[in-house]
Amino acid sequence: MSYKVTKKDVRDTWLRYFLLNQVCFNWETMQSAGVVMTLQPILKKIYADDPEKYKEAVLSHYQFFNTQPFVGGTILGAALAMEEDQSMDWAEKREAIAGLKTGLMGPFAGLGDSLFFIIPSTIFNAMAAYSALKGSAMGLIPGLAFGIALIALRYWFVKVGYEQGTKFVSGISGQLKSITKAATILGMIVLGALIVSVIYIYTPITFTSGEYSTALMDVFDGIAPGLLPMLFTLFIYWLLGRKNMTSTKAILIVILIAFVGYNLGILA
């Protein structure tokens, strides 16, 4: 008897993934604990009459898994559909599921990170920060509302992954690419604006010749407002692209520059 996954099963699977997707995040297998906790109860139902297969299936999900946890739901939904299919040859099936997970987690992470993490959180967090600097917590509301709205989308990702399996997965990636492109454009515009408004670099240097004195800062502002922050950001961008450079080292370098600059009277 093969078990038929019900609508409630899919919902429960999503709920477990929603609550525990990055539980016990670790060096070795990263998000595997979330995968095991999401799939184990439903695998118990699917393989109710074959304890050996059940154990093997659960153990196989301890494999390394790391992706963006919203679109990751689609991968797990598709994996669930494959687990349910009892007509497949067992060894082939295990290989296919492992292949599906490892094959999709990388591309999905790249897409999901920029579309659901980096771009929206940059925009909403910057809004919240501006209003917080003025003493108001109201700026938090748009971002919180967005986070709540995403819950529906996260459910849909699991559901559609289960219902349409790999077919959906390959079909949507083209669509997602054009959405990601548009979101990147929005993100770049916001980043450009942030460079001027968030980074503050001021130099007190003034050149005096006879009766005239020129502040170096006025020269920079005269060329373009926010020129120093822009140049400095591009410098850090270049720095981050160098070999053996990590974001931590970059932070320490900035602190060092600030120490030297401040104490030599170049920066204030």
Binding site: I118, T122, G187, L191, L194, I195, V198, I199, Y200, I201, Y202, P229, F232, T233, L234, I236, Y237, L239, L240, G241, S247, A250, I251, V254, I255, I257, A258, F259, G261, Y262, L267, A268
Partner: peptide
Amino acid sequence: VAGNMLPAVGIAILMR
């Protein structure tokens, strides 16, 4: 001073 300059690192990481 460092506090005012550090957002550049976050923004540069995003640009990467």
